[in-house]
Amino acid sequence: MSVSAGGAQRGVGQGGVGQGGVGLCVTGLHHAFGDLPVLDGLDFSVAPGEVTVIVGPSGCGKSTLLGILGGLVQPSRGKVTLQGTPAADCLNPLTFVFQDFALVPWRSVAGNVSLVLEDTPLSRKDRQTRVADMLALAGLSAFADAWPRQLSGGMRQRVGIARALAVRPAVLLMDEPLSALDAQTRGLLLEEFVGLIARTGATTVYVTHNLSEATRLGQQILVMGRRPGRVRAVLRIDTPLAARRADDPALQAVERSLWDLLRADAAEADRELSHGG
């Protein structure tokens, strides 16, 4: 197993382990699809309670990296460790929010949230309460009995969020959660994410290719280069999430420097034949 719980005392890069928070530590990570190297020696850590954004051109292995962090992809080499102990009520420490929502089409909205609680020790009554709470939190109470196909993209991703938060995750792994949505919905949901992340205090790893999402959410921003992916730069933004304004010149400067870092790679990636994954 590539993801394992490590002792809280084990060395964490920067930040250290916060109160009950859980961080991640990535060491010597390599990954290849067959002969094709995808990730080439990654070392970084994700500080507890922080939002780490991973940006990079398409095909740089961002999503694969997130899969490895969450134990869904077996890396060729290297390891990921959980730093710290999840809170007692955490039912699934590493929890994904998927780009394509991954909702079960034959279950109602409430049924989709309930699904991830059905194999946990929660009693039926607690489960129903939890589902109702999460739907309320995501603004979905009126849609509890709707089928996923009846929902707009934005509402579908809200179900994805409600489902993820229902298990009280220690680390939220968000894989381009807004990429399948239109620009207006994206803006709305992004602001909701800011509120929810602040409220739950979950450590968050957020993969995106959208630079304004990166500067809106990222406290640590990892910039990945073209395949085989490496960390080309690590940026920090210390402005608290709640205080960030889109017209803040400092944030705009960060966004510009991200674009400067990525522009050449993005152009290269655009010219490349797809290798899948």
Partner: peptide, 16 residues
């Protein structure tokens, strides 16, 4: 496959 991966990511049991 995405649904199966989703189920695995929430630690659903094989029977589920």
């Amino acid at each position: 496959r995405g649904l199966i991966r989703m189920a695995q990511s929430f630690n659903l049991r094989p029977w589920s």
